[in-house]
């Protein structure tokens, strides 16, 4: 079992590297959480373009036809969620209400993204 990779790391060293990598990624994720944006308004994006801006203070339920299929979007108590969809995996309905911008609601089959409106200091604004 030695010979070809006698200079390489031991199994335990690799496990420690992976554990360190997980900690690093958790830290990165934590900083994504801080750039939350504006929690009063949510954007509905289709193929990266904003098609609708939701005011989260007013409750509403509507069916959005994305062109790839439909998603039922609900706003209640200042929270937006997807309650129904005709996509095959329904990952978007399992997401529950939108809580922070590190976890936008995404429906890959319908090219749909729902996220809070970017606020000041948001990564997107810096990038643009």
């Amino acid at each position: 079992m030695t010979g070809r990779n006698e200079h390489s790391l031991s199994a335990l060293q690799w496990i420690l590297i992976f554990a360190g990598l997980i900690l690093l990624l958790l830290t990165v994720r934590f900083f994504f959480d801080l750039s939350d944006g504006n929690r009063e308004r949510a954007l509905i994006l289709l193929d990266g373009k904003t098609v609708r801006t939701l005011d989260l203070s007013e409750d509403q339920t509507f069916v959005l036809d994305t062109g790839y299929g439909t998603n039922t979007i609900q706003v209640t108590d200042g929270c937006v969620s997807v309650t129904d969809a005709d996509c095959p995996d329904r990952v978007c309905t399992a997401h529950g209400p939108l809580t922070d911008n590190s976890m936008p609601i995404i429906c890959l089959p319908h090219h749909l993204v729902i996220r809070f409106e970017p606020g000041h200091g948001d990564v997107d604004i810096i990038a643009e």
């Binding site: 990624l25 958790l26 990165v28 994720r29 994504f32 994006l45 193929d47 990266g48 373009k49 911008n101 590190s102 976890m103 936008p104 995404i106 890959l108 090219h111 993204v113 996220r115 997107d124 990038a127």
Partner: peptide
């Protein structure tokens, strides 16, 4: 999807 916001999911 032309949505850089997806990079948030990377970590």
């Amino acid at each position: 999807m032309q949505t850089p916001a997806l990079f948030y999911y990377l970590p």
